[in-house]
Design a protein around this nucleic acid. Sequence first.
RNA 1: GCCCUCGUGGUGAAAUUGGUAGACACAAAGGACUUAAAAUCCUUGCCCUUUUGGGAGUGCCAGUUCGAGUCUGGCCGAGGGCACCA
Length: 842
Amino acid sequence: MDRLNFQAIEKKWQSTFKTEKLYNKKSAKKFYCLEMFPYPSGKIHMGHVRNYTIGDVIARFKFMNGYNVLHPMGWDAFGLPAENAAKENNLHPKEWTKKNISEMKRQLKLMGLSIDWDLEVSTCDEKYYKHQQEIFIDFYNKGFVKRKENYVNWDPKEQTVLANEQVVNGRGWRSGAVVERKKLSQWFFDITKFSEDLLQGLDELKNWPEKVKIMQKNWIGKSTGCEIKFNIDGVNQNINVFTTRPDTIFGASFLAVSVDHPICKNFANDESYNKFKNECLKVGTTEEALANAEKIGFNTKLFATHPFIKGKKLPVYVANFILMDYGTGAIFGCPAHDQRDLDFAKKYKLEIKEVVSDNPSKPKNFDKLLEAYVGDGKMINSDFLNGLNVEQAKSKIIKEIEKLKLGEKKITFRLKDWGISRQRYWGCPIPMIHLEDGSIVPVDKSELPIKLPEDIDLNQSGNPLESHKSWKNTFHKKTGKPAIRETDTLDTFVDSSWYFLRFCSPEIKSEPFDIKKVNYWMPVDQYIGGIEHAILHLLYSRFFMRALKKNNNEIKTNEPFKGLFTQGMVCHETYKDKNGKWLNPSEVEKNSNGKFFKISDKSEVKVGPSESMSKSKKNVIDPENMIKSYGADAVRWFILSDSPPEKDIQWSNQGVNAAYNFLQKIYNLCNIVNKKVSNKNSFDKDFDLKINSYVNKITKSINNFNLNVVVANVYEIYNLFNDHLEKDISDKCLKLNLIKLMKILIPFTPHIAYECLEMLGEKEIKNWPKIDNSLILKEKIKLAIQINGKTRDIIEIEKGIDQITIEKLCKKNNKIKDKILNKSISRIIFVQNRIINFIIKK
RNA sequence: GCCCUCGUGGUGAAAUUGGUAGACACAAAGGACUUAAAAUCCUUGCCCUUUUGGGAGUGCCAGUUCGAGUCUGGCCGAGGGCACCA
């Protein structure tokens, strides 16, 4: 038996991958296959292996099917870890990043990916961020950039500002430090200008997971309602309320405002109010914290005038469940038809009036009911709205409100502007300067790039750019007057919002991208990455594409990513020693009883549930070690088998070992078939038919991302070969079909596939095996024979046989004939190529 | 609390979209080969029956249907998202 020497094979074929690319330049069909580029953290992890293997399968498959394929890779190279590493190791962020990039690039090459490295882009490269600065200035000139003084989320550990989206449960999403509120002048992208368009655009994205679209939709959070102005007795102030249920206005029994509402300034010196405010702050602002929190309010003793019910006064409360940054920070409460309002009204013994009913003849007693009624129904107790349904009532009351100039129809979005300022060094400098008169202007484009200074001191706290005097102090080109550079750098999400455009023409120096090439390659046909980017990165990129298009109407693309696939995580069991310390799988061994123990001292190990690989739990497997032990093809093969790509996968050494064994078997099979001589051919037709059927199935499966099913089908093909080796089948037939199998394997396990094809003497290795549709028609199918819906036999027949012929077959069938002959058959259900079902009266 | 997704053998999972449930693989048990081990190959895998065969069965309970893992309603459980969104 020839041993598979995967090291030699992989080295041999990787040298050809260097120059071989996936371009079919004459092809009319293009395919842009993109995987989310990695952050150069130092080494690749299994998540990368899974992501890039899936991408490589798609890219190679599309190429073999005649597409002109763009398959680039780059580095999301700015970001805080570089600064942290610099402090720890006394290594400049640039050096640290460069080192990591070259290491990870070397590792990625070991995987045998079909990446065109000539297109490599790194966001920390001034050749890249120069253009980002240009884009920033364009956006500024278009009015898409704003400067706002605002409360920001200040991460005390990272000494930087976080976007709202980057705060998780009141903590920094990276550092985990408790976020403080701080007021700073910040740069913002006006993403809210595009709220409606970003929402509408989701409908076009047919090849996106429904889940991601729903998440984005909820994030944008459009709600239609109206604003209503309430006069407040005794003070010279109004309260403007936003509601999505103006139809329930006649059921209003109170007003509630946020603790941050301007009207609360009246109580700034009120001791009991301040006590209440502190109570509210204690609960926090996260949904989780508030979910179980009791609804509490502060009675202002103020009264608002009901706009439609003469003489009716509504008490005004400050309530902990009203947020200032949504709507107007004030609501009217209609307890019968809103759960929170009902809870609140019960606590403070406020009126509860039913105004919408699904059964008007039976009034409900909400004092006793626990749940508010939020469904549709007929309006009652509502003056001129009575008898209408909810939708009709809404439009009628809005018209009335507008007529009386009490307010107007309004659409509110939940989406907030994107804060892009970061007070840190390792990011793209914002190309703005502050003049002595206080104005802030862009630098002249001819001065770009504004390079990051390299001589910085990272050991002091805060932003090193702030203290770099020679960099900070500059001149205004137009007037020659002294100026100070903006020391904030851009959020790294900006870097990744347009890298896919740069990949289309990374060589171009004069502009961010060559529009002709962008218009050819864009949109990305298949984008592949983790679900963790479902909202932020994808939404920001969608915003960028729109803003760029507004800036340059030659750009044709609106949506950057036509197809999106989000792969699941790679998981592994977790291990703890007797002291509760996490252990790496390499420190643990399984004995013959199936128990785990620590290798170093033979002590017993507690096995925890399988969780996504993370450094903190030490349940990580190093991809390079795996590649060294089993080969890149086995690692790729295993990570694609077992679980559907969108679901989490359990890494197991048994699994990768099985993959390795299978590839050895494939290699042996090629050796055997290659040497075999046989002219007997009685099984040839049947064999051709079956292989053709598999090629057809597999082609469909790849297009549907059912890659685990492809793996299973390949095992079946192998078993089929094994079964037929000793049968009367010609060596020619075996060889031709084996070549087909090897071609199928190219996208999955490219090294061994090419090696075997070379062994078999196949020269034509660029095309996917052809599917013969005439053979598909001749395929045999299995038809189930049922009696009263229960399967009694399965027969193998040719496709397309009609009912009468099948009935005849059944009457001759030993297992069936006794059950149907001389019985009163009341009905026969026949589905061609599937089943025949005899219904027999008892 | 709201939104989304998902419940199939010991395990990871298939199932032509309403038509053979458990393909394929891992693990296990038994066997073959071998002096032995490794490797390889074969068999088994719920209940009844000696076999042929029959029955139950896709979280639970109903329903629709000739036929339900798939559709409908109601429970139960797990995972994910969330900014109380008025």
